[in-house]
Design a protein around this nucleic acid. Structure first.
Lengths: 251, 251
DNA sequence: AAGTGGTCTAGACCACGAT
DNA sequence: TCGTGGTCTAGACCACTTA
C-alpha cells in the first residue's frame, strides 16, 4: 500500500513539507516508479485528513524538484530522472577556494582610463562620441599561487572618478557599481577552452601552451545596454566544473 | 503610486500570473528598486480585491525567480541581482546542434565485454568477484565533422546480453537502461580542460596538442551505487558553454 | 458524464519582528 | 501589542481527459 506512513499534524514541521518528504522517499525507494501515477489529490487529502490545498502545496514542491509532473484531467505521475543535462553549477569559480579557508587575494595589476577604439565601441554598442573607458587588470591567487588573470573594461562616468579607491569588490559587477552610475542587472558569460598566450603563461606562472579556461563576460544594465566586459583566463590544472543531475539526496 | 495597473479578473490568464507579471515589470523598470519593500500582502489583496492566497501565489513566483525575498514579521523586499554566479547551463552539449537542424549521428566504433581490472573495480566499487564490464566507444559527428569521442563502461548483467542491439540511445544512461537491470537515478559530471592525446587527435581529425573539453561522468542507481562511467573528449574549437545570470527577460 | 488537476475565495491561527 | 509573512481549511468553479 502506497503512503502508509503517518503525518503529525501537531508538529512544528509544516504538513505540506512532511507530505513532500514522505512521497519523495517513496519515489527514491522505488515504491513509486517512473511513469506510475500518484494517488489523486482528493484521495491523498482524504487519506491524511488534510486540505486539498495542502496536498497541492506538497505536490508543487515535488514538481519543482522535477520528480513528478501533473497533467490536467489525467493525473500526477512520477517523472524519469533526466541525466543528460549538463548544468555546470559553480557558485563562483573561486568560491570553493574561499570555503576551504585558504588564503586568497585579488591583486590589482593596473587600473587606468583608456581611449575608445573600434573594438570597445562595438562591444559596448556606443558611437564615436564615446571617448573613454575604464581598464583594469587583476590577478586572483590562493596560497601564493596565481590562479586566474582577468582584464576588465567598464564605460567611464565622469561623476564617479574614484579610480584610486580600494578594491573591496574586484568583480566586474562590483567595479561597475563602484565606478559608474550604472546598475548591473544581468550578465552573459561564455566559457571556452584555449591555449594560453605567452604573456598569460608568464603572469600565471605556468608552462607555455598550457590549456586554460577562457571566460568572456558581458554585464548589462536594466535596458540591456552593455556596461562592462571582461576576459578571464583560469589555469586548466587548478580548476574544474562539477555537475550533479537527477535525484541525488541533498539532505 | 506603486501598482497602478489593473488586473482583468475575467481573463483566461490566471490572476496570480497577471499580478506576477505586473510586479515583475515594476521591478525591471526600476519603479521598485533593490532593497525596497513591496506593499504588504494584505494591502495588495485589498488594492486588487483578490484573495490573499492569490497574492501569495504571485509573490511565490517572484521569490522563485529570485527577484524578491520575504521575511516573516518584516515584509517582502526587492532582491539585488546576483551576477557573480557561474551557472553554465547547456541542456546537453549537443542539443544546440540538433536544434539547428544539422545532420548529426552517433557512430559506434566498438562494443565488447571486457575483463575487470583494478581501476574499473575501484570506479565501480565492486570486489574481486566481479569479472566483467561492458565497453563502448562512440563518436558524435555533425555535418560529417567529428565533434566528440567518448569511452563508456557499464557493469555487466547476464540477463540482458543484447550487445548487438541498435544504438537507439547511445548516451550512457541509455546504454545502462538497455543493457543492464539498473535504473539510472543520478549523475555526476566533472568538466576539465586538457590537451588531446595523439589517438584522440586522429579520431577527431584535429591538430595534435589541441585544447579540448574533457568530461568524466559517473551514473548512479537509487542506492548511489555506480553503474556507469564514461570519459568524453569534446573539440575545443567547436564547443562553448554559455551562462545567463540576473534578471534578463525570457518572455 | 465522471474524474482529474488548476484556480480562487474568505476566512482562521500561528511565528516572528518591531515598537 | 501590532503588523508582517507562513500555514491551513473547506469549500467553489473551471478546463481538460477519458470513457
Amino acid at each position: 500500500m502506497i503512503l502508509e506512513e503517518m503525518i503529525d499534524k501537531s508538529s512544528v514541521i509544516p504538513i505540506y513539507y512532511q507530505l513532500f518528504k514522505l512521497i519523495e522517499e517513496q519515489i527514491r525507494r522505488g515504491d513509486l516508479k517512473p511513469g506510475e501515477s500518484l494517488p489523486t489529490e482528493h484521495e491523498i487529502s482524504l487519506r491524511f485528513e488534510i486540505s486539498r490545498m495542502t496536498v497541492r502545496r506538497a505536490i508543487a514542491e515535488l514538481v519543482s524538484a522535477g520528480m513528478v509532473y501533473a497533467q490536467q484531467g489525467r493525473g500526477t505521475f512520477v517523472a524519469t530522472p533526466k541525466l543528460d543535462n549538463i548544468v555546470f553549477e559553480l557558485n563562483d569559480f573561486n568560491q570553493e577556494i574561499k570555503q576551504r579557508g585558504l588564503n586568497y587575494k585579488t591583486t590589482l595589476l593596473e587600473a587606468k582610463i583608456i581611449r575608445a577604439n573600434a573594438e570597445l565601441r562595438e562591444k559596448f554598442q556606443v558611437g564615436e562620441d564615446h571617448k573613454r573607458f575604464l581598464y583594469f587588470r587583476t590577478v586572483f591567487s590562493a596560497e601564493d599561487e596565481r590562479l586566474s588573470y582577468e582584464v576588465k573594461y567598464t564605460i567611464y562616468s565622469k561623476s564617479k572618478p574614484i579610480l584610486e579607491s580600494e578594491l573591496k569588490d574586484p568583480s566586474l559587477p562590483g567595479l561597475i557599481s563602484a565606478h559608474t552610475e550604472h546598475v548591473p542587472m544581468s550578465a552573459k558569460k561564455v566559457l571556452q577552452v584555449a591555449i594560453c598566450t605567452e604573456a598569460e603563461a608568464v603572469i600565471l606562472g605556468i608552462a607555455p601552451n598550457s590549456p586554460v579556461f577562457l571566460i568572456e563576460q558581458t554585464i548589462y544594465d536594466q535596458d540591456l545596454k552593455p556596461v562592462g566586459w571582461s576576459k578571464a583566463v583560469y589555469r586548466g590544472d587548478r580548476y574544474k566544473l562539477t555537475s550533479y543531475d537527477g535525484w541525488y539526496k541533498k539532505d
